[in-house]
Design a protein around this nucleic acid. Sequence first.
RNA 1: GCGCCCGUAGCUCAGCCGGAUAGAGCACAGGAUUCCUAAUCCUGGGGUCGCAGGUUCGAGUCCUGCCGGGCGCGCCA
Length: 584
Amino acid sequence: MNIFNTYRDYIENSIENLIAAGTLPAGLDSSRITVEPPRDPAHGDVSTNAAMVLAKPAAMKPRDLAEQIAARLREIEGVESVEIAGPGFINLRLGNSVWHQCLEAAIGLGKSYGDSDHGGGRRVNVEYVSTNPTGPLHIGHARGAVFGDVLASLLAKAGYTVTREYYVNDAGSQVDTLARSAHLRYCEALGRDIGEIPEGLYPGNYLKPIGRELADMNGDKWLDAPESDWLAEIRTFAIESMMALIREDLAVLGVHQDVFTSERKLVESGMVDEVLKTLEAMGHIYTGTLEPPKGRKPDDWEERPQTLFRASDFGDDIDRPLKKSDGSWTYFASDIANHLDKYRRGFTEMIDVWGADHAGYVKRMQAAVKAISSGEAELDVKICQLVRLTDKGQPVKMSKRGGTFVTLRELVDEVGPEVVRFIMLTRKNDAPLDFDLAAVTAASRDNPVWYVQYASARCHSVRRMAAAAFPNHDMSLSALARTPISCLTDDAELGLIKAVAGWPRLIEAAAEAHEPHRIAFFLYDTAALFHGLWTKGKDDSSLRFVIEEDKELTMARQALVRGVETVIASGLGIFGIEPVEEMR
RNA sequence: GCGCCCGUAGCUCAGCCGGAUAGAGCACAGGAUUCCUAAUCCUGGGGUCGCAGGUUCGAGUCCUGCCGGGCGCGCCA
């Protein structure tokens, strides 16, 4: 339950009353009304712009209308005061009891606190990682993997039915290159000196075990055989091996996906041909000639007519080719089939998570989704910008010689999966991210993971101290949910309670915007409030969490601590991180 | 040349589908520890929100044009 939604209902009821009373005309558009916490807490607890938004269509002065609405809001139980400010803001101040009820509810719900029906069970498909199965994942993939995985968890918490999807790019020429590279390692495993890996093949050592297995299974039958004999078989085997490797990499990071859709199968099943027919029937395809890109004309550019999709009819800048010069499908064509496949599986909300190098591809894919669904389906594309890996401020060298950049596995081995997951979400997806190996493992306020975990550890520490002070007292969640907490009236306590109360609203807003990073900032801010209250107890011992001579107060504060703990655990849970109970 | 993203304090960044006096951390200056983990906390200074227009009751946020940085631009995926 999001308390701001509760007050939105109250405000909308007030407006309906005014309509019924004839003060306001019927048919007003309430969609632009916001009900939110004011930025400046001095303005109260809940603020709405309703009077300003409705003033013009109602032909009233904003402040006059505000007064009419305010008069009705003052009748609501729990509303302490209603003030009109500035150009016509209505500011509500809520009594402490309202906040205390929020805290009680949070504790009562425990793990499920923050769960929302905002999504109404609507199905949403989140596609992420989706790399070529040609090698292990590197650090850049880690960001997209974490982002997609956490976004999916966030949407699930916000009441969506989520499918986590991986589109396996196993149909292009790159998997043929993979097969040739694997064949070379196969020859090597059979004792042949392969020398330097030729330009254009994958040099990585990770292919050596693949070559070994191929040799064990097939003997020397492909050693001097023409490529046509072995390409398809080795390709299939190598792709499967690479996908197994990628899944392991993802598992190490705690990332799992529900559906793996194979590009090759889409092509072989005729889905891509079908897409062409479908689009053709709709009149979205024609044969035409494209202008060469200006200022960067490829050397071997030759003008020729192509099969083009009318992307420019759907918001893209130019029309896009669907066939290569050799007649095979472009990646774009099969990706349209991929999205058509999703649409046919019942998804009208799709989210793709891509790397920065795919930014130029966004418009055409969105255009295609509109076209294949006749505007019914919506695709949001989240671009994850580059990760700059440093150590104590110095860039970490990427070794191309070994055929790998810094691999995801190396990164996770170095700092642990939980640190990687948290840090990857400490920036908006569309901003570059600095990942400093030294900073992310430091024990200081600079390091958000550590800082939030420290707050969690302190919660547990206080819990242990309280249990020691009152050994025979029931401090279970259900007991604390019933304990009287009206004695929590200090500003710092109320501030923390309000932060806890704001958790459901944050979930809904972050899910709506597809912005999981907001959780990281929320957790950091909440941790800061908690650390602040903690230290206040140093100056003023009456604010300590455990007061041995006052059991009632201690229990009330236990309730607060459990509320904080609940929110931190809930937030870290979406990130796939286990809260710590102790710091050593 | 074109498209997308970014530009907010000395540095790194928040700013919630437009809202009130633009906020944190780092760094800098000062302060708090016989007491629940001081690995923390408190106080202070510090800003033409890249520039210029526009939209409106109101713009860091939306639109247009410039400037600067990143990514990309048929036959890679």
